[in-house]
Amino acid sequence: MSVMFLLFNILETNYWLSTFIGNSVGATVSYFLNKRFTFKNDANHGQTIWKFISIILICYILSYCLSYLISHYLISSLSIKNNEILGNVSILIGNVFYTLINYVGQKFIVFSKKTSAQKV
């Protein structure tokens, strides 16, 4: 999230590029930490990486599109016209959705016990 907020607020990168780059940085770290520590998966990288990338992209699109729509609705309901507030609220909401959806996808699709048992 810090990468997203840095890009969006300090470097004034747009919402979509900020969230995409931030999630790409996080996903890179996440793959290795989740594979090894969170889910203790011993399948080879070839079995898990394509699933991981697919889940990350699906989660990104769902989460940040949904958060963008929700935050626009909330902000317009409150008559706030500040784009910085709108972007930051969208990033926060998107991160909540992303974390929840991504965890489920990683646990049950990418690093499931079945994937680990099929080790080549």
Rank of each mutant, 00 (worst) to 15 (best):
G46L: 13
F8I: 09
I55D: 00
T115M: 13
C65T: 15
E84S: 04
Y60G: 05
F52A: 03
I70W: 07
T99M: 08
L11T: 10
A43I: 13
T48E: 06
I10R: 15
F32I: 13
D42P: 05
F39S: 08
N102T: 05
L7K: 03
S54F: 03
T19I: 05
L17Q: 13
G26E: 09
G94K: 03
K51Y: 02
R36F: 14
A117P: 04
L11A: 13
S77G: 10
A117Y: 08
T13H: 14
N82S: 04
I61S: 08
S63I: 01
K114A: 06
C59S: 12
I10W: 10
F39D: 01
T28E: 11
Q47R: 11
V110R: 06
K40S: 15
H45Q: 10
H72Q: 13
L11C: 08
S90W: 00
Y73E: 13
L62C: 07
F39W: 09
Y31H: 06
S54V: 01
W16Y: 07
S76W: 05
F97K: 03
F37S: 15
N44S: 15
L78A: 10
F32Y: 14
H72W: 08
V3L: 03
S30F: 10
F32Q: 14
E84W: 02
H72K: 12
I80N: 02
N23A: 12
E84I: 06
N23H: 13
N14W: 06
T48G: 11
F97M: 00
T48Y: 14
N83W: 08
K51H: 02
L7A: 09
L69T: 02
S116T: 09
N95K: 03
L78E: 00
F52D: 05
A27S: 15
V25I: 15
L17P: 01
A43G: 14
T13M: 11
I91M: 05
W16D: 12
L86F: 01
N41T: 09
S54Y: 00
S24I: 13
S90V: 09
Y68D: 05
T19Y: 03
K114F: 06
